[in-house]
Design a protein around this nucleic acid. Structure first.
Lengths: 191, 191
DNA sequence: TATAATAACTAATTATATTAGTTTTGGCAA
DNA sequence: TTGCCAAAACTAATATAATTAGTTATTATA
């Protein structure tokens, strides 16, 4: 019966597929257990209930997202790197809509580890912005802007918020280029 | 017993307060009925179940948000108007976190009326952008950028995504100014 | 081979959404 | 005023989900 003994990674993988296929809210312990061929209480041997599962999904999603962004920035710098990161971000959300949703937990379930996982993306952006030689706070404001744009774009697209027949990839590139040209303008003005 | 006979507006108001105070996911038909002093099945006399309630919240939220944005743009033009709209957007989300969350329903519950309500904000932004004399598609890409920024910023702030001790209002203003300066640059370059 | 830990199971509890069917009530017409 | 009817409340019942408690089976190991 407990033949191959399920492990947490397998459970997580099934949850991710379920989330991406059916939407995060469709990932119940029942549906997950059914997909794994076990009864839902058995899941408690591996994960800390629904809340624990959501947390694992968030951590895993943040990790994968940051990995994608990092990979996209390898060998690139400045605007090229930032555009590449932006494209990778949106591509990740398109590939993992449910998992991405899980990376945005309610504030009350935030803990140190989640904050740290989230901050890794912030650090990546700070590293790329490094060459612009901005003051620390100026760089942080820029990062907030970039994160807002990417999260907002990806979320709206995910929810079908862009109804019109207008190329979304084009919208993404323009948004990033517009923001970055505004940024360059500031940087040059300061010098 | 059915003394003053509840109406839909009263129910909606209670649901909004519940959502803003406790979070949207805490708005159950049980909790809502309890707050109204009735039993949950009685709600079905006024609303079409949980799904219907969510839809009403979305519609109402989109309406209120668009009203706020519109009011903010009265008597203003260009960058001033856009900054004012952005501030109003974020202020609305801060005031109505739960209701705002309800304005982003899953794609499968989208219908014509919701799309129309959502499009009113798009039209407002298009109207403000009118003076820049952009091509239709250029303007639409700009609007997507603005919406993405505002939604992303508001969502991240709502979820406690901005952990650092750095003024968020300042971040918002800088984000908008950076984007708008990039936009002005493009417009001027085209001329 | 026997035992201990692990991981599955069943059973039961609580909470929620929903439907069906019943009762109450408040307004309006006779 | 009185009686009727539609609206809106109610109770009861069902289905799904999360969770806990307690039980059984299996696997690894002493």
């Amino acid at each position: 019966m407990s033949r191959k003994s399920l492990d947490k990674a397998t459970i997580l993988q099934a949850a991710i597929e379920l989330a991406d296929d059916m939407g995060l809210e469709q990932v119940t312990l029942s549906s997950l257990a059914q997909r794994l061929g076990i009864k839902s209480p058995s899941l408690y041997n591996h994960i800390d209930g629904m809340r624990g599962l959501r947390r694992e999904l968030a951590l895993h999603g943040l990790q994968l997202l940051c990995d994608s962004m990092t990979k996209a920035a390898v060998g690139k710098a400045g605007e090229k790197a930032l555009l590449s990161i932006g494209i990778a971000y949106v591509a990740f959300v398109r590939e993992h809509p449910g998992l991405y949703e899980a990376t945005q937990p309610a504030p009350d379930q935030m803990d140190e580890e989640l904050v740290a996982a989230s901050y890794r993306s912030v650090q990546l952006l700070l590293d790329v912005l490094d060459e612009y030689q901005l003051e620390r706070d100026d760089a942080l404001h820029m990062v907030r802007g970039l994160r807002s744009m990417l999260h907002g774009f990806a979320s709206l697209e995910l929810r079908g918020g862009f109804g019109l027949k207008l190329d979304t990839d084009e919208s993404l590139m323009r948004m990033l280029r517009t923001y970055l040209s505004g940024m360059e303008l500031q940087v040059r003005t300061i010098d």
